[in-house]
């Protein structure tokens, strides 16, 4: 059971980080569908910087920085120029796919998957001397992801900037008329989401495994988008949605070991996510019509 719980947390952590970023954007009034590409970019840059410096932590820092910069590709068009964020996101997701595959060949000299003994992954908590049940075999980024959710819930509800961000998302014109600089908050939210995706990507490539492979975000960013849609402005609900996804993925792996075809395991997280979306929408409707 502990092993299963650990697998759930491992699968969930990158999605939680991306979803938290998406949620901040959604609260500020920007629909962020670029999470998939940013997770992938984060994973790639984490491996790149870890390989270059030999330090997993520098890899994490590099990924956070590089993905924050990458998020400018969404924030400048969507916030400054008010382009359709959905269209921009389609572009940046495609770009991330091409850019990571391209740079992989240029830098590492081969496509497909890159792993190397020189590549250092993140240490586990156990290795750091914290041999807790379930959390022991995880990287420190896993508990960090869940603590960040708690922090976001507190920050949105209890601080000055959190209140302002909520206001901006509800009625941008009203926020402007009391002198809030709406674009600044939105840029901050989108770039913050980039940083969180960088962290998520780093966990994916240096925590869950220690390698980079093409397209390794594998739809997690889209699951995060769905989690944001389910959560509205409530971080805890977003976390629950992500855990559901993580459980589906972990269960899929388990069942694959028991002879379920790999394709079914691949499909399960998507179908379960969609199912959750349907159930949530249907109950919301029922409550309304009663």
């Amino acid at each position: 059971m502990n092993a299963f719980l650990a697998a759930v947390l491992t699968a969930t952590a990158p999605v939680v980080l991306a979803a938290l970023g998406g949620l901040l954007c959604s609260v500020s009034g920007v629909f962020n569908m670029a999470l998939e590409g940013q997770l992938l970019w984060g994973a790639f840059t984490a491996v790149l910087f870890s390989h270059m410096t030999g330090s997993a932590w520098l890899g994490v820092a590099g990924a956070v920085l590089a993905t924050t910069l990458y998020a400018l590709l969404l924030s400048v068009p969507a916030v400054t120029f008010r382009a359709d964020p959905v269209v921009v996101a389609v572009g940046t997701n495609l770009l991330a796919l091409g850019l990571t595959a391209f740079l992989m060949r240029q830098v590492f000299g081969s496509g497909g998957t890159f792993s190397s003994p020189d590549l250092s992954g993140l240490p586990t908590l156990a290795e750091l001397g914290l041999d807790l049940p379930v959390l022991g075999p995880q990287s420190p980024l896993v508990p960090a992801a869940f603590l960040l959710v708690a922090w976001a819930a507190w920050w949105l509800g209890r601080t000055r900037s959190g209140l302002r961000l909520r206001g901006i998302g509800q009625h941008a014109e009203a926020a402007e008329s009391i002198g809030l600089r709406v674009p600044a908050y939105r840029h901050a939210a989108v770039l913050g989401a980039g940083a969180l995706c960088g962290l998520g990507g780093a966990q994916l490539a240096l925590g869950n495994v220690t390698l980079f492979s093409e397209g390794m975000s594998a739809g997690r960013g889209w699951v995060a988008v769905v989690a944001v849609m389910l959560a509205g402005a409530r971080p805890w609900l977003g976390l629950a949605a992500c855990l559901l996804f993580g459980a589906a993925e972990a269960l899929g792996f388990r069942l694959q070991g028991l002879g379920l075809p790999q394709q079914a395991a691949d499909a399960a997280p998507y179908l379960i996510t969609l199912l959750a979306l349907v159930v949530a929408a249907a109950t919301r409707r029922k409550v309304r019509t009663v």
């Binding site: 209890r158 601080t159 000055r160 209140l163 302002r164 909520r166 206001g167 509800q170 009625h171 014109e173 009203a174 926020a175 008329s177 009391i178 002198g179 809030l180």
Partner: peptide, 24 residues
């Protein structure tokens, strides 16, 4: 130009909020 999801008090003070120990 009001925020429908916020309370009256939040609507009034937003942008010039009273703060105590870093919190609203």
């Amino acid at each position: 130009r009001l925020f429908p999801g916020l309370s009256v008090a939040e609507n009034v003070v937003i942008g010039a909020e009273p703060v105590r120990r870093g919190m609203l």
